[in-house]
Simulated assay, not measured.
Amino acid sequence: MQDVHVPLEMMHDPQGKDNPLHSRDPQRSPMQWNNEDSAGFCAPGVVPWLPLAEDYQQCNVEVEQKEEHSHLLAVRTLLSLRRSIPALNIGTYESIELNSKECFGYVREHEGKRYLIVLNFSDQEQSLSLPFKEGVVVFSTHLNHTGSIELADFVLPGNEGYVFEIV
């Protein structure tokens, strides 16, 4: 879900009433459950206290549950990985230096299993020199990469994140 434009007369956040730029209301719009009236957030005929996003009929939980590469599926997959892989839950944490200010990387390790997490916070792909030779893709943000990848000269797509098991 994206932030929703909330006209000043509909703002409820006290900070937003004084200064709309500081309002939290755009992020607190009703949860978009489905494409029905009020996006399934409240009973039919009831008007939610904040406006819905204009795209609620296409962007909602019901639609995301059916999409193979949805944000909802990515979040569920990450939560499942965190529960099932001890290194991602209770393992040690070590930041790694990357040759890009737009990216963040770290390693989690537990009982000999190591996982590299790299995140690109920019729209542009970033060429990274990672301190590992090879990794097996455990997760990619768009859920469309699998298998082994050489990491020494890895190109991380824009707005993408990976979890690798280090081999």
Rank of each mutant, 00 (worst) to 15 (best):
C59F: 04
W49E: 10
Q126S: 12
L130M: 01
A53H: 11
E97H: 05
V163Y: 12
L116F: 03
D3P: 13
A53R: 02
G91W: 15
H22A: 14
F139D: 00
V137G: 00
N19C: 14
P51S: 10
H22E: 15
S140M: 00
L81S: 04
G16C: 03
K66V: 04
L72V: 00
N35G: 14
P44M: 11
C59W: 05
Y115R: 07
D18Y: 04
L128S: 02
G135T: 03
H142W: 00
L119Y: 11
M10K: 14
D3V: 08
D25Y: 02
G16I: 09
R76M: 15
G147C: 03
M31S: 01
H5I: 10
K133R: 14
S29G: 13
F154I: 01
H110Y: 15
V4Y: 05
E111F: 14
Y115K: 09
D13K: 04
V107G: 07
D55I: 01
E125G: 07
I117V: 12
N35R: 06
S140D: 12
Q15H: 15
Q32A: 13
P20R: 08
L50N: 03
E62F: 04
S29F: 02
R83K: 11
E134W: 01
V4L: 08
L116N: 00
Y115F: 15
Q124D: 14
E94A: 15
V47F: 01
C42F: 06
P51I: 01
L73V: 02
G91N: 14
G16W: 12
D55Y: 04
E165I: 12
M11V: 02
L98N: 02
S140Q: 04
I96K: 03
V63M: 08
Q126H: 07
A87N: 12
H110P: 11
G105E: 09
C103P: 07
P44I: 10
M31H: 06
N35C: 07
R114A: 15
I90F: 13
S29T: 15
H5M: 13
K113W: 06
R76T: 12
C59A: 05
F121K: 04
P51T: 09
D3S: 12
G16N: 02
A43C: 08
V138L: 04
Q27A: 12
V46T: 06
Y162R: 14
R83F: 09
F164M: 11
F164W: 10
P131H: 02
E36T: 13
V163D: 07
L52K: 01
P20Y: 05
P157K: 00
Q65Y: 07
H22C: 09
H69R: 12
